[in-house]
Nucleic acid binder design. Structure first.
Lengths: 131, 131
DNA sequence: CAGGTTATATGTAAATCACATATATATGAT
DNA sequence: ATCATATATATGTGATTTACATATAACCTG
């Protein structure tokens, strides 16, 4: 019930190599602002992006980031409800976040180039939000 | 020797969920302009994007698109050298290309939001190309 | 004929993705 | 009391994707 693949035109799936995602830098940016636990991060991602990530993969991703040393975690048992594993970004994590940003700027440039090329060939399908 | 992972900061790989790619819509857009064979498409992708796709995966992707009915192919034996499988986009392929564009516009918007958020938090790392 | 270019294709280990499922604590409803 | 729901973390798994290696074959050049 979580992360169903978005279906842009209601009729066609964008099968194959997916562009959407980049969960890891988004997690790092969220954690750069303040420490948080998994459930909180899941909510934040879902808000940005109507379909975030399913809990299973989110927690696995966080553990992966921890294994790589980009974040560190500790248990928070001071709150009512089940214990929370609270994550913090590390200095290595900050470095990776900055590296990701460079990559993401490159991807955005390539998407722009693709869209310009597309719109030159299909002017009837130009974006309406175009200035 | 083909598609080595780009290493944005020379020191850090953007490991995990990759953003770059979207080979399928780029192939469809190229084929929307004119029919072409695999090797030609590989060159075109490499030109846009210094590291295109390795031949193995490119040919497999093309066969996949054909299986889904987005392109069709026929052998061209009129030229010297090895025979070429020439691909053409189909009407279904055009429909998928248009669907991909909607998805890619959404991804670009989300990348923009991410970068705006990042730059608000790290103003010292703002893009220099910013107007 | 040896070596390089053009051209297409298969093999494969590792990573990723989407989805299902398990576990446990607390709260609110009946 | 018990049942459902929300909160919170975690494992299992089949299918797909990725990166890279390798195979095959026609043609050209020296």
């Amino acid at each position: 019930m979580f992360n169903r693949c978005s279906n842009p035109s209601e009729n066609y799936h964008c099968r194959g190599r997916r562009v959407h995602g980049f969960i890891q830098p988004r997690l790092l940016l969220l954690l750069a602002k303040k420490p948080a636990h998994g459930y909180e991060l899941m909510d934040a991602l879902s808000e940005e992006d109507n379909a975030g990530l399913d809990p299973g993969n989110l927690y696995r991703t966080l553990r992966g980031l921890e294994e790589e040393g980009l974040v560190s975690s500790s248990w928070d048992t001071n709150n009512p409800g089940p214990a929370r594993r609270v994550y913090q970004i590390t200095s290595v994590g900050f470095e990776h976040l900055h590296a990701w940003v460079i990559e993401i700027r490159n991807v955005r440039r390539r998407l722009d180039e693709f869209l310009v090329d597309y719109e030159a060939n299909f002017p009837e399908n130009r974006s309406e939000e175009h200035v």
